[in-house]
Each structure stands twice: as C-alpha cells, then as structure tokens.
Design a protein around this nucleic acid. Structure first.
Lengths: 178, 178
DNA sequence: CCTTACATTCAGTTTATACTGAACGTACAA
DNA sequence: TTGTACGTTCAGTATAAACTGAATGTAAGG
C-alpha cells in the first residue's frame, strides 16, 4: 500500500479514540510526514477535506500544543508544523484528563462523610495507584522537559543514538492562542 | 443530596472523553459508591436508564476489567461490582491504546526508506519519549501488580523511590481480567 | 407442556458532532 | 476606493453513536 497514506489514514482512526476528530488525526499524521511547514490549503488539498475543517482542527492541535503556526516573510499564509515536543504534549494532555478523574474521586472522598468502609477503601486505593503509577509519568515528563531545548546529547537507554527532538524553525508570526 | 448524584453524573461526563458512553461512566461512578454488588435492575433503576443500556455498558466495563460479575446462591440475577484493581485496569487500557499509536509510528518509521532527515528525527524522538516516559508507567504497573489483590490499607509515599509491597490483608476477590 | 424471571439482542429514534459550502472579515496592494 | 488572497465563522447536512422499548433467548419451577 501507499504507506504514507495508510499511515495518515490510520492516524485518523486512532485519533477518534482519543477525543479528536478523524481529520485532526489525519492532520497530525500528515504533519509528521512533512519536513516543511504546510499551508492550510496544502493540507486541505492533500487530505481531500475542506479548508474549514483544516482551520478548525488545526486550531485544536495548536491548543493541545501538538502543532504550531509558522509564518514566512513575504507570505500571507499560515503554515503549520509539529511543535518540537509534540509527543510529550500529547502525553501531558492525556495526563490532564486523567487528573480530572482523579480530582473527582478525591473530592468525593473528602466531602462525603458517611461512606461504607469498603467504599472509603476504594478511594484510598485510587489514591494509592495514582501516587504509585501516575506520579511517575509526571516525574518522567518533568525530567524530559529539562533536557528539552538543548541540542544533541539525549538518549536514555535502548535503541541507538538519536539527534534530538527537532530543531526550531523560523518563527515569524507566533501569536494568539486560546 | 447533591454529592453522590453529582459525582455519578460527573463521572458520566468524564467518561465521555475517554471513549466510553455517558451511561458507562455513570455506571462506574455508581459502582464506586456501592459497597454491595448491584443487580442490573438496581442499576437501571438508580440511574434512570433502560436495562438494555445497563446490560450493554456493563459488558464494556467487564471487558475493560473495571467491573466484574458476581453470582449469589439461589439468585438468578447477575450482580455487578468493581473489580479489585479497577483503577490499574483503567490505566492499562489507556496504555494499550497508547501503544497502538506508538506501534503505528514505529511501523511507519521502519517501513519507509526515503524519509527526509527531519522526519526520521521525529520518529526517533517519538521512540525517545516513549522509552523515557511511558516505559516508567509500564514498570510501575508491573511493580504494582506484584502486590495486587487487596483493595486498600497501605498508604501512599509519593516521590520516594522504592514503593515496596505491604503485608496483605483481606483478599477480596482477585479475579481474572479481560 | 406453560409460566416466570431474568439477560441479551434487534430495530428504530434521538442526540451529538463531524464536516461542508458559502458568507464573512481582514489585511494588503494598487 | 477596488480587488485579491487569505483565514474564520455560520448554518445546514450527513454520519455515527447513544439510548430505548419491544422482541428474543434461556433456564428453572411448576
């Protein structure tokens, strides 16, 4: 199969189980595969969807910190490319949704006084797992962020030597954001 | 009584951003607050939804390993309660979805030969973050599983390095998981 | 056999959201 | 001013999924 297309298409599908639209997922896939920033019309054309959809969904990617808007001198168009730490941003976003769930349980635990023993134990169990498991992601993300922005010299374990998350491109017109 | 209901209701909302239906989320919330297993009709009645919905959504919770079916002697009805490690199961499920995304990127990286340098670097970056951050959750989950099987009692200890198992107490219902 | 008490599945309806074309707004150039 | 080239928003349609009542299936008791 045409690999790039099937990759993009499967990204679209995968995104649907993550609270994103299919187009947002395809957008994400397309941006991964492009080394140069893409204009809105480029993307609409390549994906075969309307400009309106690209505009809307691209904004959602911006809001999640996955993509960024790029300007080019002497060009009125907006260009989009992945942000340098897009993958970590996705993790952060998922963590924040998780935190919502956790906070909900925490509130309930604290505000309700007359809960049966087993129920109270459950809430305690939630706290436990959260501290035991999820706190590690947080920690790992923080550590990762410390390395971010510095060139070269990355590599934790496994696999071979890797350059570094992407260098920054020319940012001319970065601005407003929800 | 605002609290239990609002908790359940907010669970319903929260579930919607996690690939579950609203009813599944309410079901989940209701199960958290019940110390006794609930029959299908109990749940349908309490939540004000149809038995059909409870049947369907309860099965989804079963499949995710969040709830389990309980039988009572001399009673033909099915009862539902949370599985003892429901919270960890939720994390596992989310991890598996994440793995899908990751595998997708990995395949693309390996099978495509003529990618621009920047794109190859991106895929390498994905590998890096995955190894650096997500591997920790995996690890933490595995550690957690080693002393799994009891609902609570054992208190958190954030930050510090070795979580360490604790003496087990009442073993509730260590069951299989989907 | 028939009836009762369940759970599940089916078919239809409602509801939400993705997606679109067209209108609109804006900035720039002439 | 007009005209052009953009991006965004709006109003409507299409699509998918949630949800339901009713039908179906199953086992036990009579």
């Amino acid at each position: 199969m045409a690999h790039p297309d099937s990759f993009i298409e499967r990204m679209g599908l995968a995104a649907e189980s993550d609270g994103l639209s299919r187009i947002a997922g395809r957008l994400f896939g397309a941006l991964i595969l492009h080394s140069e920033p893409c204009s809105l019309d480029d993307l609409a054309d390549q994906l075969g969807v309307s400009k309106a959809s690209v505009s809307t969904e691209a904004r959602r990617l911006l809001e999640r910190g996955v993509a960024e808007r790029i300007g080019k001198p002497g060009d009125r168009r907006d260009y989009y490319s992945l942000s340098s730490d897009f993958f970590a941003q996705i993790i952060r976003f998922r963590l924040s949704r998780w935190a919502t769930l956790h906070r909900l349980a925490k509130e309930m635990h604290e505000e309700a006084g007359d809960l049966p023993r087993l129920v109270r134990e459950r809430f305690a169990y939630i706290e436990d797992v959260n501290d035991f498991v999820l706190a590690r992601v947080d920690e790992a993300l923080r550590e990762w962020s410390e390395h971010e922005g510095r060139p070269a010299e990355r590599r934790r374990q496994r696999r071979t030597n890797t350059p570094k998350p992407v260098a920054k491109r020319q940012v001319v017109r970065g601005e407003r954001l929800g």
